[in-house]
């Protein structure tokens, strides 16, 4: 796994050289949360939507960055050069996991500050769970991003996956209606979507909503989905 480190380092160095993306990662979530807090009164809807806002940003952004990043690796030939080098495909994916894990922590810091400052979020169960949920959210988005990037020919197609893969998760995952209240044919798909567990975990971490078991179940489900999506990503990396 030694060669995962240079991959992670390269990823972070690339982002350092891409100031617009850095702005997107750090500035955009804070700005949107600020707008939300201005439009919706507090206490009230602003707090209700705090877990959703805090939970899904990292997931969606990591999906986008990974899918476009991997697509670029394919298009520019760097992925083929890496595949010829002594790096194992698991090291390549773990390198991505480490790099985006660090990025997830940076985003979590921004979201933590924004949540406290704009949404009066209180994190009654401590911020360590908040960071854990954010990083798991980032990594589940990462695996999906790598896998879907293989089906995209260009950046526009990566964006086209958003309404198909990401939006249903946001609509069904508990944002507007508890998953339990959905019709059975929507509830079952919702229960295999990472965002469902991200929102449920954030409900507990931010609003003290639900029982501790809900948090543990959500963490386990997110952990399992993260592992499955990363294994799937490692398996499909060579299919370029």
């Amino acid at each position: 796994m030694r060669l995962a480190l240079p991959v992670a380092r390269r990823l972070l160095l690339t982002l350092r050289g891409d100031r617009r993306t850095l702005g997107l990662v750090a500035g955009a979530p804070a700005f949107i949360i600020f707008l939300f807090s201005e439009v919706f009164p507090s206490p009230g809807p602003a707090q209700r939507f705090a877990p959703v806002l805090l939970g899904v940003f990292v997931f969606v952004l990591t999906y986008l960055l990974t899918a476009i990043g991997f697509l670029r690796e394919r298009q520019t030939g760097t992925l083929e050069r890496i595949r010829v080098s002594p790096v194992r495909r698991t090291e390549l994916v773990v390198g991505y996991v480490l790099g985006f894990g660090v990025l997830g922590i940076i985003q979590a810091l921004v979201l933590l500050g924004s949540g406290v400052f704009f949404l009066d979020a209180e994190f009654e169960h401590g911020i360590e769970f908040f960071f854990l949920v954010e990083v798991l959210g980032a990594l589940s988005g990462l695996g999906i991003g790598i896998v879907l990037s293989l089906f995209a020919e260009n950046e526009f197609q990566v964006l086209q996956f958003m309404p198909v893969v990401i939006s249903p998760q946001l609509i069904l995952g508990g944002t507007f209606l508890p998953v339990e209240d959905l019709s059975w044919y929507l509830e079952y798909p919702a229960r295999v979507m990472p965002v469902t567990y991200l929102i449920k975990a954030m409900d507990y971490v931010v609003l003290d909503k639900g029982a501790p078991e809900d948090l543990w179940v959500s963490l386990l489900a997110l952990g399992a989905m993260t592992v499955v999506s990363i294994i799937a990503a490692a398996l499909v990396v060579n299919r370029t």
Partner: peptide, 30 residues
């Protein structure tokens, strides 16, 4: 694979890195 080198037809370098950072990255991989 440590004995193999490959220069693809495409650009195959990272545009947001410097020349040296690109070469260092592949030096690390090897």
């Amino acid at each position: 694979r440590a004995d193999l080198g490959y220069m693809p037809q495409e650009e195959a370098v990272y545009r947001n890195l410097t020349v040296r950072e690109n070469v260092e990255f592949f030096a690390n991989l090897y």
